[in-house]
Design a binder for these strands. Structure first.
Lengths: 188, 188
DNA sequence: GTCTATAGGCAGATAGAC
DNA sequence: GTCTATCTGCCTATAGAC
C-alpha cells in the first residue's frame, strides 16, 4: 500500500507539471525507485493510473473544502482560502490536475471523463454556495446568479494558473485573484 | 508554399484539439496526403513546426484584433466580438493554441516560450486598451486598473474554454462571458 | 518536393523467475 | 511485489533515389 501511494504522489506531480501525455512509466519508476514493469502490478494500464489520480485529487479537494468550511470564515475569506490552493500549485509549477486533464480531454480514455466532470462540478457547487452565502449576508453584491459568479471565479483561477506558467508573473496571478474577490464585495 | 500552409492548418487544429504532445507527424501526413518523411522537408523538427504555429496563430490574432478595432464599436461590443473568437474555438472542440501550449510549457523546447509569452502579452494589452477606453467613456465602471481587468477577462475566457471541453456545457460558457462584460458595465 | 527504407529510441504492456 | 527480458508498436528524424 505504501508503494502505491508513492506512485500516486509521483504521478500526480508529473501530470500537473507535464500533462498526462507528457510523462511515462519510466519517469515514475526513476522517482520511486522500482522498475517500470513493477508499476504495472499496481496500475495495470496508464488509464487505470489516471482514474486513480482523479479519485485521489478529488478526495484532496474535498478535504480542503471541508477544512475551509470548518474555519467558519466570512464568504470573502473563504474565497481567499480557496485561492490559496491555486497559489500552492503555482509555486510548485503545477497546473490544477483537473485543468490539465481538461485540455487533454480529447486524447484521454473515456473512462476518465466522468471523474473529471465531477471534479469541476464539485468546485462550482462549493463556490456557488459560498457566493450565495456572501450574497444573503449582504457581504457581496451579486449581479448574477451565484452559479454564474462561481463559474467566472473558477474559470478565471484556472486560466490565471495557466497563463502564469508562461509569464512567470506571480504578481499578476495575485492581482487577478484579488480583483475577483473585490468585485464581488462592493459595487458602490 | 501551398503544402506548407496545408501542413500548418492541419497541425494547428491538431494542437488545439490534442495538444503538442498529443499528435504526431503521422497524423498530419494522413490529413494532408503526403508521407511522414516529406513533412521534414517543410519543418525539419517538430519544434520548428511549433515555432511556426505560434507565429501563424499570433498573426491570426492580430488580424482579428485589427478587424474588431476597425468596426468602431463601443467597448462592450468590442469585448463581445473578442468573446466570439473563443466561441468559434469551442464549437470546433479546440482550445486556444496559446492556452494549450501554456499547460504543456514545461515539456516544450525553450525556443517556443518567447512567442508564447508575446501571445499572452498581446491579448492582455489589447483588452486593457479596450477596457480603459470603456472606462474613459463612462461606459465601464472600473474597480481596478484596466490591466488587471484585462487579466481577469483573459484568464476567465481561457478557463471557461478549458472547462467547457469537459462539461460540454456551451450555455455555461456563454453565461460566463456575459457576466464578465455586464460586471464591467454597471455597478449600480 | 515527395518517395521508400530505415535508423535509433522510447512508449505501454506481458511472461515468467525469484 | 519486484525483478529481468522481451514484445510490439509508434515516435522523430535521416539517407538517398526519383
Amino acid at each position: 500500500m505504501e508503494m502505491k501511494k508513492r506512485i500516486l504522489t509521483s504521478a500526480q506531480k508529473l501530470v500537473q507539471q507535464r500533462g498526462f501525455n507528457g510523462f511515462s512509466y519510466a519517469d515514475i519508476a526513476s522517482e520511486v525507485g522500482i522498475r517500470k514493469a513493477s508499476l504495472h502490478h499496481h496500475f495495470p494500464t496508464k488509464t487505470d493510473l489516471g482514474v486513480a489520480l482523479l479519485e485521489v485529487y478529488s478526495g484532496q479537494l474535498d478535504s480542503e473544502l471541508k477544512r475551509i468550511n470548518g474555519l467558519l470564515l466570512p464568504a470573502d475569506a473563504k474565497l481567499a482560502a480557496y485561492v490559496a490552493l491555486y497559489r500552492y500549485s503555482l509555486q510548485a509549477e503545477c497546473m490544477c490536475l483537473g485543468g490539465m486533464l481538461a485540455t487533454e480531454a480529447l486524447t484521454l480514455d473515456a473512462v476518465m471523463l466522468p471523474g473529471l466532470k465531477r471534479f469541476f462540478a464539485r468546485n462550482t457547487e462549493w463556490l456557488a454556495d459560498v457566493i450565495a452565502e456572501g450574497g444573503s449576508h449582504q457581504l457581496f453584491t451579486l449581479s448574477g446568479a451565484p452559479e454564474d459568479h462561481a463559474r467566472v471565479f473558477l474559470s478565471a483561477l484556472q486560466g490565471a494558473l495557466l497563463i502564469a506558467r508562461v509569464t512567470g508573473d506571480c504578481a499578476a496571478f495575485e492581482q487577478t485573484a484579488r480583483l475577483l474577490i473585490t468585485d464581488l464585495l462592493g459595487k458602490g
